[in-house]
């Protein structure tokens, strides 16, 4: 097994901790000011075009060699499925799924494809203590399942609830999620399988910065059709996949309460002082302790025993 052993992990943590102490200020500055790789690719998802045919799900299944689905991909009864009170979500066997939402004031339901949004500053990446995750210059958030220890921090960290866990695997359960078809397509400049398969071009593939312009142009040209918002332009620091909709995003199941800043911003102030705590506090408080107890060791002991006696 090539998984990290406990000893190797502890050695790595110690080295990492030492490195962190040397560069706390740089780390803190870097977080929150990163706007994605300039040439990073992205996908503009236009929900107004989706007809819920599920071809993207089939294409993903084939491309990623995923196990057989429990229902055929042309079976639309899945849209009525409710699991634990919720609509379908991505699993270790389905990296993308389409859900149907009934929207107020329109006869047509809204379909929404769900997959990893490939954040500019991924919370999964920052939450991973074995550095399994990586944001590639092409724009994908990929992970190395060989180093994944199965802690599932990323599942909790992800604001979109995307990473799934192979619970059924007894010997080597790991995290599974959409990787933007990085290995087989993106790194060669090709669009992911779902994008290519879509009959309606719900998804447009290209450089994120170019697509963002197109997204705003579509809103400008069709102000009566679209909600004036590009979901994912600013959410959690910007995502590689972003959305246009004709219905309010919360009605299509989007979390509209997400912060505009990356998730790492919630903790970076705290993380920046960790090295200080580790290096200065022990010496400082040892000093205080020594000063405070100088020549009083007997008195302290007496007080303590006195308290104890009173207590009984």
């Amino acid at each position: 097994m090539s998984k990290i052993t406990r000893r190797r992990f502890l050695a790595g943590s110690a080295a990492g901790g030492a490195a962190l102490m040397l560069t706390p200020a740089q780390k803190a500055l870097a977080a929150g000011s990163f706007e994605g790789f300039p040439e990073g690719m992205g996908v503009l998802v236009d929900l107004t075009r989706c007809v819920g045919c599920r071809t993207c799900e089939a294409a993903c299944n084939e491309e990623q060699h995923l196990p057989e689905p429990s229902k055929p991909f042309d079976d639309f009864s899945v849209f009525d499925e409710i699991h634990h009170g919720q609509k379908r979500r991505t699993t270790d066997k389905a990296y993308t799924i389409v859900n149907r939402y009934d929207v107020k004031d329109t006869e047509e339901p809204l379909y929404r494809k769900i997959q990893c949004n490939h954040c500019n500053e991924p919370a999964c990446l920052t939450s991973c203590f074995v550095n399994a995750y990586k944001k590639t210059p092409e724009g994908a958030v990929i992970y190395n399942s060989k180093v994944c220890v199965g802690c599932r921090n990323c599942m909790i960290a992800c604001p979109f609830h995307i990473p799934a866990y192979s619970y059924h695997s007894v010997l080597n359960p790991v995290i599974k999620k959409c990787i933007f078809c990085y290995d087989t397509r993106l790194k060669e400049g090709k669009p992911p399988a779902c994008v290519e398969s879509c009959p309606q071009q719900v998804m447009t593939f290209g450089k994120r910065k170019d697509l963002m312009k197109i997204a705003h142009e579509r809103i400008k040209k069709n102000p009566d059709t679209y909600v004036n918002h590009v979901y994912g332009e600013k959410e959690v620091g910007g995502t590689g996949w972003f959305y246009l909709s004709n219905a309010p995003f919360e009605e299509a199941g989007f979390d509209t309460d997400l912060p505009k800043k990356p998730i790492i911003d919630n903790v970076k102030d705290f993380l920046a002082i960790v090295p200080m705590v580790l290096t200065i506090w022990p010496a400082l408080f040892t000093g205080f302790h020594l000063l405070a107890t100088k020549g009083k060791s007997h008195g302290h002991g007496d007080d303590h025993s006195h308290d104890e006696q009173e207590g009984h």
């Binding site: 089939a58 294409a59 057989e68 689905p69 429990s70 229902k71 055929p72 991909f73 042309d74």
Partner: peptide
């Protein structure tokens, strides 16, 4: 491709 028709998942398998 769609796992439908004769390639549909067998109900009993899952």
């Amino acid at each position: 491709f769609y796992h439908s028709g004769e390639f549909a998942p067998k109900e009993s398998a899952h």
